[in-house]
Design a binder for these strands. Structure first.
Lengths: 163, 163
DNA sequence: TACAAATATATGTATATACATTTAATGTAT
DNA sequence: ATACATTAAATGTATATACATATATTTGTA
């Protein structure tokens, strides 16, 4: 169940994809779509990284903090976090360690299964997220370039693609 | 011109996004779209990585090789390659070094501007790409889950989003 | 010409990542 | 109960990456 269509041989300057893409001779729209998804994700990731850097956390660390906040107080194990991360990474343990060093998370050993370690977000962690939320709200409209209908359509197609 | 809407607090298991996504209470379809793009790109990247590993090259290295092949014999500088890469990375130099070690590329110093280094793909590099092409062709239909019309629509929306 | 600014590439360094292995706790079959 | 497999988390190690800086060359300008 692999997907192996990756056509990168066309010239693509980061900032000019939208222009270039019209001139290209991609073998097909599908190939172009794969490239477009990877490219757009990289573009989004870049923005995110630059923004979060001001708060001294990586996108991965931010991702984990959001997962923890989403738990609304319920603990979640290291494994649980790993499964929910955007980039499946085998380093959830070390990643959480970094967050602990920054006093943003805490570890609690499960009494019923002492192999497991429950992770919770600290008050400081929640405050950091709140701070980031506020800053992000101002910028949210930047994403207004597509309509809600288009966003829905985008989601539908991406889901189908992976489905 | 940043994009800062990243809602990750919903539970998302890699293999089950398509199920989970229907149950989620994302703030909006737009937020969901950002997550969906990042997630799908990660999913695509994973497939790619596992496949390419059998040929002992990384996705980034593969990306560079395709760019070089796309040059159809014309040389391209390190900087030129860097601009065209999917993941803007400041390490094009070292990346190309790895390819050189594997005899897949060669460096040629430009005579008209001796700061520049022209890179070309070797016969061995082209052979490797050919080999990968053949293996990929068998799998291409896997990407047939969306129609060409949908692929076009996907491209249109992604372009608009970045535009 | 001389000399500062700009450009292309390479490198130093700290951190992040992938992948394999280890450690500890639990489950299961005999 | 004992032995073996399984699971959760942590760690070792090689490689990759980001970011800053260095080096060499070219360009622009007084």
């Amino acid at each position: 169940m692999y997907i192996h269509i990756f056509v990168f041989e066309i010239l693509l300057t980061q900032m000019e994809l939208e222009k270039e893409i019209q001139q290209t001779n991609f073998k097909s729209q599908k190939h172009k779509a794969v490239l477009n998804i990877l490219f757009t994700a990289s573009w989004l990731g870049c923005q995110q990284q630059r923004f979060l850097k001001e708060h001294d956390i990586s996108p991965q660390q931010y991702n984990v903090l959001r997962i923890l906040r989403g738990q609304k107080g319920n603990p979640i194990t290291v494994n649980g976090i790993q499964e929910r991360m955007i980039d499946r990474s085998s380093n959830a343990s070390r990643l959480i360690d970094k967050l602990k060093e920054k006093k943003l998370t805490e570890r609690v050993i499960c009494e019923n299964d002492r192999r497991q370690v429950d992770i919770v977000i600290t008050k400081l962690g929640l405050e950091l997220l709140k701070e980031i939320d506020i800053e992000m709200e101002d910028e949210e409209n930047t994403f207004g370039k597509i309509t809600i209908k288009e966003a829905e359509e985008l989601n539908r197609i991406l889901d189908k693609l992976r489905g």
